[in-house]
């Protein structure tokens, strides 16, 4: 079967799976950013146990393979009294993993500012909240545009783990399995999914680059 025949037969499912992949990517990235901000707040707080907890959280989810986390969510948690749907498990796993990398990006954004600026801010009488609001957050956001763009692409690629659990509609990687188990599609199904992934990454990368050029701080 050629690419066009596969598209004619499975076009609808492909469109659904592309949209579902995009939606999952968006949800996971947003959730990951939110949780990443929370972890970063813990990690820079003056309270030692919270810092340590934030550090441990990030190291755990940065180093665990997503499959390993996914099997715990899907197969182990029901034994511990928590039953979640396949999609919820997938979203939760990707969000946890993404949040740890997001926090690392935020931390390096904060570290790039330099202690001198904080000292200068304090010496002109800015309060702690003002320092955070006027100096730390704007600068660290602007330096993290490029890493966060890469994280968004990485999130897109991580949602491929959805192929390891039954999802309806399947996401783009699961589609290769879906099409191949229903017809002799050969390479076509793979090519279609690959085009969707590569195309999405190119668009995200292009937009991220444009945004970065606008806001980058030249140090």
């Amino acid at each position: 079967m050629g690419v066009s025949e596969v598209f004619a037969e499975f076009g609808d499912v492909y469109l659904q799976s592309l949209l579902s992949t995009w939606l999952m990517t968006a949800v996971c990235f947003a959730g990951g950013l939110a949780l990443g901000i929370l972890a970063t707040v813990l990690r820079v707080s003056p309270i030692k146990p919270l810092r340590v907890a934030g550090d441990i959280y990030v190291q755990l989810f940065r180093n665990i393979p997503t499959v390993s986390l996914l099997v715990i969510f899907v197969y182990a948690l029901p034994y511990l009294g928590l039953m979640l749907s396949y999609r919820t498990c997938l979203l939760a796993c990707v969000i946890l993993v993404v949040s740890s990398f997001a926090s690392e990006n935020f931390m390096s954004g904060i570290n790039a500012i330099g202690a001198g600026q904080i000292e200068a801010a304090r010496s002109i009488g800015l309060s702690f909240v003002q320092i955070i609001r006027l100096i730390v957050i704007p600068q660290s956001l602007r330096t993290t545009v490029l890493p966060m763009t890469n994280l968004l692409i990485a999130t897109l690629l991580t949602t491929a783990m959805g192929s390891q659990v039954p999802l309806t509609p399947p996401e783009l990687t699961g589609m290769v399995n879906y099409v191949n188990s229903r017809s002799v599609a050969g390479i076509s199904a793979f090519v279609l999914s690959a085009i969707c992934y590569a195309g999405t990454s190119v668009v995200i990368g292009f937009l991220g680059n444009k945004l970065d050029e606008k806001v980058r701080i030249v140090r």
Binding site: T158, A160, S201
Partner: peptide, 23 residues
């Protein structure tokens, strides 16, 4: 380079597992 960077490794694994044996 860009193609390899923008594909999930799982998709490539499915390519070698499902697609290549068909040929």
């Amino acid at each position: 380079t860009e193609i390899f960077r923008s594909l999930p490794s799982l998709l490539l694994i499915y390519f070698f597992f499902l697609v290549i044996p068909k040929y």
